[in-house]
Design a protein around this nucleic acid. Sequence first.
DNA 1: CTGCACATGCAATACGTTTGCAAGTGGCGA
DNA 2: TCGCCACTTGCAAACGTATTGCATGTGCAG
Lengths: 144, 144
Amino acid sequence: MTDNDESLELVKHAIREVGLRATPARIAILQMLLNSSSPQPHSVVAERLAPLGIDSATVFRNLNSMTLAGLLRRAELGDHVWRFEAIRVSQHGHDSAHPHFLCVDCGEVTCLDDVQLTASSQRVTERVGEVTEILVRGHCNQCR
Amino acid sequence: MTDNDESLELVKHAIREVGLRATPARIAILQMLLNSSSPQPHSVVAERLAPLGIDSATVFRNLNSMTLAGLLRRAELGDHVWRFEAIRVSQHGHDSAHPHFLCVDCGEVTCLDDVQLTASSQRVTERVGEVTEILVRGHCNQCR
DNA sequence: CTGCACATGCAATACGTTTGCAAGTGGCGA
DNA sequence: TCGCCACTTGCAAACGTATTGCATGTGCAG
């Protein structure tokens, strides 16, 4: 069994795990997002999967159903585009606030997985309420 | 001079201050948002001003131009609807990387002027580029 | 008062998202 | 292993929000 076969089985299993059918569309979407280092908008996912004969509406429905099922996370970075990222098992602990950096020029998104903001965000939490998302915007190194 | 006259003059002045013309549409929009306790979506503003003969597209253009000019703040609460709120003079602190907390339930924006995130945001800056805005989203203490 | 750049009204358009429906298929039970 | 049925898909149309073009109107500087 090759690595690809193995990861394919893992992906299929993850999808069935949450009560969804492991269809080609779902498998392709999840694999793509697992291979992405940052959240991807629907348009990008759909474009990438179109050559495989997967419809844009199907991508939409699956992104939503998989988000609902807890396989993906849907983020709104302030530019009116939903972006989706796979929730990796290693992150499962508690899905606390997960900072993203959005370049307002090129739109590139960087995940700030490290715990940099954790301590301070906890202080923020005490004061204002429950923090669910942290977004950092600015100009990335390429666009400056 | 009545209170209304006075606030009218204040509003007109504020609009001219940022280099825009004090048109009836802009005055009505700014007055309405100043009287609102939470950010309002374009649709609500437009509905409310329609009886005055103000077109929806005009409302849109003015919300955008006034946001650009710094009179309003445009917020995305996570439902893909832009909401606008008047920026009151008292809130005008320094414009650096200035954290905001946005309640996704009521839309209230809290300024986190303190230096809580400064140290970590500097580390973020080194890695990704220039940080211009930090937004923290969640549920505020009143809405929990 | 007057002119002109800026603003407006109206309508058409762009775009992201959702939905209806008929055909197709994953995967459980026999 | 096979067949059935609820879940999925593809296609296209519908939607709601956001944007734009253009001719007309008007705030306000000079």
